[in-house]
Design a protein around this nucleic acid. Structure first.
Length: 570
RNA sequence: GGGCCCGUAGCUCAAUGGUCAGAGCGGAGCGCUCAUAACGCUUUGGUUGCAGGUUCGAGUCCUGCCGGGCCUACCA
């Protein structure tokens, strides 16, 4: 049994995420976590909301709520959605937790003491009316490029030109609208990543089994030279940068930059979990500290490609620079983007399907199956309603759902609702078992390797093999001549349904559970040998014919959804 | 402007420089009748974006072009 630590990129707090966010990190991470648990490994699966930063403050202001209250509410919303999609986190934390405050300050202190942090002075807009420094995005004005009058200090949303706040014409505060701004000197802490670049590069070079996408992104940044990054901001919502014992002064009123404290939350969330369980510190430290038991942990991170630089460079820099034995990531599984009907999912334009809407329309399994079987692994992939309808109807309803239906109903009508007795296996059964052994082994290999789409393809082939077998064995014909033979076929087929439920659970946990419950074998474990597994339900074992596991999506529904989610979110 | 990625069948995607570029869906035909008009079998379908080049051999490597996207450019 291995100990596997899995983290999914943290969803940002400022609203409900769309399906693209789900497929790029949380969903494949969940698939892997469920699989590894099913194989008997000890799994720590961590996720959390990323709550700090300017966008959170802006979203809270827009909602007319204090930022802490807003974040608490949105965390609950996201936690419920995660449950809705059956994301099996060991703990779903919050980057604003006391545990994260403490750990972030601890690591910053260590970095400071080790000479990896220095104070630098820069010029920034100060709003007299608001009595505070304004981060780039809090400054608005007229775009010098296109004349748009609501350009933000970091970028003009109209012409998309990247801006420096000082370039704006007639700059004003986005908070109060005040134009009483002046450039003042302010101090910020900088993480001296450049001093750690050599160590980071050596570490990345030692990761020989990483995916090409991950390595090429990391190497590109290293090649250009790791820049020292400001890790503080002039905000009130966040982890205070001035604290007792800090090896610097003058950081009052400033907090750590969200990208400094967010990945630290992976660790802090594990601490939150231990506290919530009433466990002591060894419980979480044994997952993260190589000197306290984490040496044998295998740590895997899941994320979209946009997150790779932070996970290959910034976060390792934080941990390495602390000179404490934190367990660095062992493997990074990164994903490309999921597009929507020929364009991009867009949170700001309300384009695409959002997580709450998706669950209102259809159960989690439908989305899980489509998203995972089309995961953007090698390149960006695309969601279309037509493809979604076809895949779900064909794979889930026809191939898997109908297999269960035809087998259980045939049994009920001919033999009753118990596994029938009599008859023997012949050549067909031997051939089927051999095929399933081969395919199951391939499926397991792909799951181990986190080859999500290939695993889905193999799983579907395993489902299809059941229908092929039935067609050849034709129990409906055998029943007329030799009922015992028909009984043997159906006994195997019922056991095959059980096998499907077990091995499909990482993809479609609800349907798997429904099926196992109907078969009265909810504790069914992962199959060792296929031949043995196909005898798990003995003659006489009672079961119930389940309702159809999956319904089909009608053309009219698809058209309605297509229209409903084409533009602005209602 | 600079760096990078992608472009393969009607659709979604595969293919260590090496048989005839594959699979699922869709289309066509046949079969079966247990089942959610489901299932099975057979079959159709590609000038691998375009133009050159390297090679005994290119979807794969190189150059240019066209089209889409990302980073550069402190959204997260």
């Amino acid at each position: 049994m291995a100990r596997i630590l899995i983290t999914s990129a943290l969803p940002y707090i400022n609203g409900i995420k769309h399906l693209g966010n789900l497929v790029g990190s949380q969903l494949p991470a969940d698939l892997y976590a469920r699989y590894m648990r099913a194989r008997g490994h000890e799994v720590m699966f961590i996720c959390a909301t990323d709550e700090h930063g300017t966008p959170a403050e802006l979203a809270a202001a827009k909602a007319g709520k204090p930022v802490a209250e807003y974040c608490a509410e949105m965390h609950e919303v996201q936690a419920r959605l995660a449950e809705g999609f059956r994301l099996s986190f060991t703990h779903f934390g919050r980057s604003s937790s006391p545990q994260n405050h403490a750990l972030t300050q601890h690591l910053a202190k260590r970095l400071g003491e080790n000479g990896y942090i220095e104070t630098r002075t820069e010029r920034q807009f100060f709003s007299i009316a608001d009595n505070r420094f304004l981060p780039d995005r809090y400054v608005e004005g007229i775009c010098p490029n296109c004349g748009y009058d609501k350009a933000r200090g970091d970028q003009c949303e109209n012409c998309t030109k990247q801006l420096d706040p000082t370039e704006l014409i007639e700059p004003r505060s986005a908070i109060s609208g005040s134009t009483e701004l002046e450039l003042r000197e302010t101090k910020h802490l900088y993480l001296l990543q450049s001093k750690l670049a050599g160590e980071i590069e050596a570490w990345i070079d030692s990761r020989t089994d990483w995916p090409q996408l991950t390595v090429s992104i990391a190497k590109k940044w290293l090649k250009e030279g790791l820049k020292d990054r400001a890790i503080t901001r002039d905000l009130s919502w966040g982890v205070p940068a001035q604290f007792p014992g800090a090896p610097w002064e003058g950081m009052e009123g400033k907090v750590f930059y969200v990208w400094f404290d967010a990945p630290i939350e992976y660790i802090a969330a594990t601490h939150e979990w231990a506290d919530a369980q009433g466990l002591d510190d060894t419980a979480w430290r044994s997952w993260w500290r190589n000197d306290e038991g984490a040496e044998d942990v295998r740590y895997i991170q899941f994320m979209g490609k946009d997150n790779v630089p932070f996970h290959t460079l910034s976060f390792p820099a934080t941990l390495i620079g602390s000179r404490e034995p934190w367990h660095l990531v062992d493997y990074i599984k990164s994903f490309n983007y999921l597009n929507y009907e020929g364009g991009q999912f867009s949170t700001s334009q309300g384009r695409g399907v959002f997580q709450d809407q998706a669950l209102e329309i259809l159960p989690a399994d439908y989305w899980r199956w489509w998203l995972l079987s089309h995961a953007p692994e090698t390149s960006d992939s695309e969601f279309t309603w037509e493809n979604f309808q076809l895949s779900v109807n064909k794979d889930l309803a026809d191939v898997l759902g109908n297999f269960v239906s035809r087998v259980t109903k045939f049994c009920r009508s001919r033999f009753g609702e118990a596994v029938p007795e009599g008859g023997d296996w012949g050549e067909r059964e031997t051939a089927l078992i051999a095929e399933l052994e081969t395919r199951l082994a391939a499926y397991e290999r792909h799951m181990e390797a986190m080859e999500v789409r290939k695993a889905a393809t193999e799983l579907r082939a395993i489902w299809a093999a059941g229908n092929e077998y039935l067609q050849e064995a034709a129990p409906w014909a055998a029943y007329k001549e030799d009922p015992a033979r028909a009984a043997a076929i159906i006994r195997l087929a019922l056991n095959l349904a059980r096998l499907y439920a077990v091995i499909s659970a990482p993809f479609i946990p609800d349907a798997s559970q429904t099926l196992l419950r109907a078969l009265r074998d909810e504790e069914a474990g992962w199959p060792e040998a296929v031949g043995t597994a196909l005898g798990a339900l003995p003659p006489g074992h009672a079961f119930a014919v389940p309702d159809n596991l999956f319904r089909k999506i009608a053309d009219e529904e698809r058209e309605e959804w297509q229209a409903r989610f084409s533009g602005r979110r209602s």
